[in-house]
Computed example of a mutant assay.
Amino acid sequence: MSLDGMIAQMERWIGTGEPNEVQAWYRQRNGAAFAGNFAWCDALITRAATDAGERDAVLFGTDYAYTVAHAQAFKEHNAWHAMTNGIKNSGIRRGDIVFFDWAGSSNIGAIDHVGIVTGVSSDYKYVYTIEGNTANVCARRVRVVHDIAGFGRPKYKAAPKATSTSSSSSTSKRPQVSLAKLVAAFKRDAPKKGTPVSYEPTIYVENALVAEKLLASKYADGHAGTATHSGYALWQERCGFHGADADGIPGMTTLKRLGQKHGFDVVA
Rank of each mutant, 00 (worst) to 15 (best):
K125N: 15
G109C: 02
Y124W: 13
Y204A: 09
F151N: 01
N89E: 15
T202A: 11
V183L: 03
T165S: 13
L258E: 11
G109M: 02
G225R: 09
A244K: 10
K88G: 15
C138I: 06
H77C: 03
S105C: 13
V58F: 13
K187A: 13
S172I: 13
K161S: 14
V137L: 08
G263N: 09
A180P: 02
G132H: 00
A149E: 04
S170Q: 11
T163Y: 13
T118P: 00
F34E: 01
T226E: 05
I45E: 03
H262Y: 14
S122N: 15
A135R: 09
V183W: 05
A8Q: 01
K181G: 08
P175L: 14
Y199A: 06
S90D: 05
S198D: 14
A233K: 08
N136M: 01
D56V: 09
S172W: 06
T134N: 10
G91D: 15
V98G: 02
V144D: 10
D112G: 08
K161M: 13
H81N: 14
A73F: 11
L44V: 05
A65T: 08
D245S: 14
N136S: 10
T16E: 09
G109Q: 11
A103W: 10
K155A: 15
L214K: 09
E200H: 04
I111M: 06
S106W: 03
